[in-house]
Design a protein around this nucleic acid. Structure first.
Length: 260
DNA sequence: GGTCTTGTTGCACC
DNA sequence: AGGTGCAACAAGAC
């Protein structure tokens, strides 16, 4: 689930409930989701006042105290930040629980992929975030074009390359390509100026609308609303949707709207 | 049983 | 060199 819009939702959870509050206890229920020592993680983040959370791509960065140590959170495919009462029973997939005076922030994740880390300084934060491209929600058209045309590659894998631009995942990219009427295997170097303008505009619209609700909506008017259907049809032209794999990811597209 | 999964990493291969 | 494909990670759905 978690792509840029989802992480934007988790950012709001932290901003609305945990920012300005001080951690009284940090419970690491599953050391597997914490990078490095679980004891050090809990110790370093206990008694810290959370600051304003920031999102870069799919990473959420929460400063504590003045700035460091920073909490760095990644949500893999199934993770989430959930706010609730301190007295609520733990969900079985609550891997780490940050307890504050007024409630608890729960890092809930079914699978356990990347998880939580902390950085003691700029250099350690850079070890995690340094290779990321600019955030997909803030990139301008010319930068988008420049970063995706450094070499000839398929458009879908290029958009999902977090070092090119950060934040887009499988669902976002299929939605953006469908709205842009571009096939997933279009060569980035073959696109012309009007197509870049259009792609940039659609990308922005998908991210804005999705971020507002904290997920890529599965409304009937969106391609995403039909990707799990057996006999899915294009919401624009009713053509049977096609399925395949690009960049190793399950891909859905409309062969009529997105001709190859 | 087998296959699939919205993310990332590391590796082999070209 | 850099794009591409794949397995691995873990747990669940079908």
């Amino acid at each position: 689930m978690p792509e840029l819009p989802d992480v934007e939702g988790f950012r709001r959870v932290v901003a609305d409930h945990a920012a300005g509050a001080t951690t009284r206890r940090v419970r690491v229920r599953d050391a597997g989701v914490v990078h490095g020592s679980a004891d050090a993680f809990a110790r370093e983040l206990t008694g810290r006042t959370f600051g304003r959370p920031d999102r870069h791509g799919k990473w959420l960065v929460v400063p504590t105290g003045g700035r460091f140590p920073e909490l760095l959170a990644h949500f893999g495919m199934t993770g989430a930040f959930v706010w609730g009462g301190t007295d609520e029973p733990d969900h079985r997939h609550d891997r780490v629980v940050f307890e504050f005076d007024g409630g608890a922030l729960r890092y809930r994740d079914m699978r356990k992929l990347t998880g939580l880390r902390w950085a003691r300084d700029e250099s350690e934060a850079d070890d995690v975030l340094g290779d990321l491209g600019p955030d997909a929600a803030a990139i301008d058209r010319d930068d988008l074009r420049a970063r995706l045309t450094r070499s000839r590659r398929q458009l879908k894998p290029a958009l999902m390359d977090q070092t090119a631009l950060a934040g887009l995942g499988n669902l976002c990219v299929d939605e953006i390509l469908w709205r842009s009427r571009l096939p997933p295997d279009a060569a980035t170097t073959e696109l012309r100026a009007p197509e870049w303008t259009n792609l940039h505009r659609r990308l922005g619209a998908v991210l804005r609308q999705s971020s507002r609700v904290g997920r890529v909506p599965d409304r009937p008017s969106w391609l995403t609303g039909h990707r799990d259907e057996h006999d899915g049809r294009c919401p624009r032209c009713s053509t049977a949707l096609r399925r395949g794999r690009f960049g190793g990811r399950a891909t859905v597209w409309c062969p009529h709207c997105q001709p190859g």
